[in-house]
Design a protein around this nucleic acid. Structure first.
Length: 788
DNA sequence: AGCACGCCGACT
DNA sequence: GTCGGCGTGCTC
């Protein structure tokens, strides 16, 4: 490990960075050459010169005339334009420089932006406090931030803030003390000293303790040699956050199909320039190993690579597979990475030292300086949509980042989104298919259980047909997985005497019974009360009744029916957090459970070799709402969860789906395995109704402290909507979150047919009905993923 | 009087 | 997004 510390490439890069910064020192020179960083041959050209600043003359308070240099700086504020700041004497900045600026009473981090500064009241003008010794955000990153801000109708400063989410990383990491061999030979060669010298010869520099450890001696042996001058003390760059991936480490053993697919993907990497490719292949067809070959190709070109994964999929199993292929794990970026490590990773990505990142959607805003490939795994996954603060879809923005950066992107999925499928079919995206002949042989036999003809007993939720299959599976010593996409014990509690329904005080939704925690919880806002014994309405004791199933209730049913089976319940809200979940998943894979009951987290890529039965309870659950993507989502989820069965060598496996509407196209598609027909239908339907990807949707979320205020502004927005025959504004529609955290809210839906420029319409609408004073707030979601 | 809380506007 | 100023209303 310490051998990598003196990596020549790194020190060269660091030196070059320092030299560039030195050259950029300017004052009074308002034109400068922008210096291409990294691979100038393959990146889009930046204009050779650009106006960075303008000199302005101002009268200061004492009436003196003085010249000052001002630069635009993006600050974390919801304004539409950068603020202007003065560059103090002796300070040099360039577009992209990360700076500290005073903002009101505090100091904040901002980014020097492109263009010229606005005219600003000179009395307001304040000076940049300092320039961080940190690589500036490059031209493509700045264009990307501007693009995202423009598309999502978000203030650019708030988009930039997403790229600056590691404040302590703006200052360089401290260098560490190390030692290096000199020409001096030790006075006396002991056995311990010989070992130290032999070990030390393997690398140019070492950490003192690292060498002692590697040589298997106490630090005092090393100290003795330092004293004699055999080692000299040197300063070493901070150790890398992760080891360099070794592209030749674990070359995959690919079959013919996989090799062809891998070559096709690697070919997109070989060509400089933007391409988007859909990699489609069923579970078990080896998608990951195939796109790893494209990753290897990009790494071999010396570029950085980003692999985006839906949050939950950032599992140990992915990291393990990466490690097996590249000899070391990737740098991870998600909410569970501890702050220190986050800063280190952020910094080293900006410096180009970290070349491979696996991360959740927020990783898209990392400051790569030479990004050459993005993979979006499970590209259909709804977790890519950020639904708070700045609303954005990481899959779509990833395509934009690749396009701006002129490099390839690969979207991988067994069940692609309709959007991506249409893009692939129209030729906008490449389409690489893994036929998965081998995987298909191991696919489970899928069948529907018609709940009308095989209903469960009263108060039960597992059909006798499924129960029998569970019994058979457990008897064979194999595992059964029951999937239900609903946390808790029951979605509704009511009083048998007066009919009172337990509702959230803040939202207009039912409280979900969580028996393991002894609470009734609101799944929208997090509100919770202890489970009451008496009805709050009529006061009657012990007459509350749970309606409908949740995973806890299914677990209870299994414990009653199969008391000898080892039953495990998996749900994201169970105590112990992600670490415990990981442990439980490992235990299941090791065969330490007979029956597993879980929410959708069990649908995500885990290997359960003994899982030969998967049952979906209440498979229709997601179809009921009026969401345009409900069918697609349900199909994807059911496909994924039934894919958990059938990975085992030779064993027959089954997938059984409990449904009240077996004739529904989703159920038919799942049961027949005919995804193609389902998608065709779905595409036609979207086209017919002008829904995405053929038309556009946007939603405007209005909230206020009082219902009256919220409604008034909502109506005002609707009234002020520019006349555009093509675009319709629906609503105000009450969402189930009508009242969230004490605020009344609802949304206007904007529906535009093909090719309509929805952003322009929204901007005009917002301009025509400015937000009133008071508590009224408004947020725009340009790609809402649901109507709810 | 003293302060907790909520609302509201400014922030270059 | 975050902060301070200011008004309201409650408590020691």
């Amino acid at each position: 490990m310490p051998g990598g510390l003196a990596d020549h490439r790194i020190s060269r890069q660091l030196r070059r960075g320092a030299a560039l910064r030195a050259q950029l020192s300017f004052r009074g020179a308002f034109h400068l050459h922008r210096l291409a960083r990294g691979r100038s041959d393959s990146k889009p050209r930046t204009p050779p010169t650009q106006v960075l600043t303008t000199g302005r003359s101002h009268l200061n308070q004492t009436g003196q005339l003085f010249a000052t240099t001002t630069v635009p700086v993006l600050v974390p504020l919801p304004g539409n334009r950068p603020y202007s700041y003065a560059v103090p004497d002796g300070m040099s900045v360039q577009p992209g420089s990360i700076v500290q600026v005073p903002l009101g009473p505090r100091q904040v981090a901002g980014v020097v932006w492109d263009g010229v500064t606005d005219d600003v009241d000179p009395r307001k003008l304040r000076s940049i406090t300092k320039v961080f010794d940190c690589p500036p955000l490059d031209h493509t990153m700045r264009r990307f931030i501007d693009w995202v801000a423009d598309y999502t109708l978000s203030p650019p400063g708030l988009v930039a803030r997403m790229a600056l989410r590691a404040p302590a990383a703006f200052d360089p990491e401290p260098w560490i003390d190390g030692i290096a061999l000199t020409d001096t030979t030790p006075s006396r060669l002991t056995e311990a000293r010989e070992r130290v010298l032999a070990t030390a010869a393997e690398a140019p520099t070492w950490a003192r303790l690292g060498l002692a450890h590697a040589a298997g001696v106490t630090p005092s042996v090393v100290d003795g040699l330092i004293k004699q001058g055999v080692f000299e003390r040197v300063r070493l760059p901070p150790p890398p956050a992760v080891a360099e991936p070794d592209t030749s480490y674990g070359r995959a053993n690919l079959n013919e199909d996989q090799r062809a697919a891998a070559n096709a993907l690697a070919a997109t990497v070989a060509v400089d320039g933007f391409t988007a490719t859909l990699l489609e292949g069923v579970t078990g067809s080896g998608k990951t190993e195939v796109y790893f070959e494209a990753v290897a190709a990009a790494l071999e070109k010396g570029r950085q690579v980003l692999i985006l994964l839906p949050e939950i999929a950032l599992t140990q199993s992915f990291i393990d597979r990466f490690h097996a292929r590249f000899g070391s794990p990737p740098a991870e970026w998600h909410s569970d990475v501890p702050p220190r490590q986050r800063e280190k990773v952020w910094r080293q990505i900006a410096e180009g030292r970290v070349r491979i990142v696996a991360g959740a959607r927020s990783a898209l805003f990392l400051p790569f300086n030479d990004l050459g490939l993005i993979i979006v795994d499970e590209e259909h996954d709804p977790a890519y949509k950020q639904e708070d603060r700045t609303f954005y879809h990481a899959r779509d923005m990833a395509v934009v980042r690749a396009s701006i950066g002129a490099f390839p992107i690969i979207l991988a999925s067994a069940t692609p989104s309709v959007e991506t499928r249409v893009n692939a079919a129209s030729g906008r995206y490449g389409h690489v298919r893994l036929t998965g002949r081998f995987a298909e042989a191991a696919m489970p036999d899928l069948s529907l259980i018609d709940m009308r003809s095989a209903p469960p007993a009263r108060g039960r939720f597992v059909s006798p047909v499924l129960a029998t299959a569970i019994a058979e599976t457990v008897a064979k010593g194999e595992q059964a997985l029951l999937f239900l996409n609903r946390r808790g014990y029951a979605p509704l509690t009511l009083c048998r005497v007066c009919g009172h329904r337990f509702q959230c005080l803040d939202c207009s939704t039912w409280l979900v019974d969580h028996r393991l925690r002894g609470q009734l919880q609101c799944h929208h806002c997090g509100f919770a009360v202890p489970r009451p014994e008496a009805c709050p309405e009529c006061g009657t004791l012990d007459h509350l009744v749970a309606c409908g199933p949740g995973v806890e209730r299914i677990a209870e049913e299994m414990l009653t029916d199969f008391p000898d089976a080892r039953t495990i319940l998996l749900s994201s809200d169970l105590p112990g957090g992600a670490r415990r979940l990981r442990r439980e998943l490992d235990a299941i894979a090791d065969g330490e459970a007979d029956i597993v009951i879980g929410t959708q987290l069990v649908a995500k890529g885990h290997h359960f070799p003994m899982m030969t039965l998967v049952g979906a309870i209440d498979a229709d659950l997601g179809l009921a709402n009026g969401d345009p993507r409900a069918a697609e989502r349900t199909f994807q989820l059911l496909h994924q969860v039934t894919g958990r069965a059938g990975r085992s060598g030779g064993r027959a496996s089954r997938g059984m789906i409990q449904t009240w509407q077996p004739e529904h196209p989703v159920m038919q598609a799942i049961a027949s395995g005919d995804a193609k027909r389902f998608y065709e239908r779905e595409v036609n339907e979207r086209e017919r109704t002008s829904l995405p990807p053929f038309g556009r949707l946007a939603s405007i979320i209005v909230s206020a402290n009082s219902r009256r205020e919220a409604e008034e502004y909502g109506r005002e927005l609707r009234r002020a909507a520019p006349q555009d025959a093509a675009i319709e504004v629906l609503g105000p529609a009450e969402a189930p979150l009508a009242l969230l955290r004490g605020r009344h809210r609802f949304r206007l839906l904007v529906h535009a047919p093909r090719k309509a420029h929805i952003q322009g319409f929204l901007r005009a609408l917002i301009a025509a009905a400015p937000r009133p004073r008071g508590s009224v707030q408004m947020q725009v979601d340009v790609d809402p993923q649901s109507f709810l």
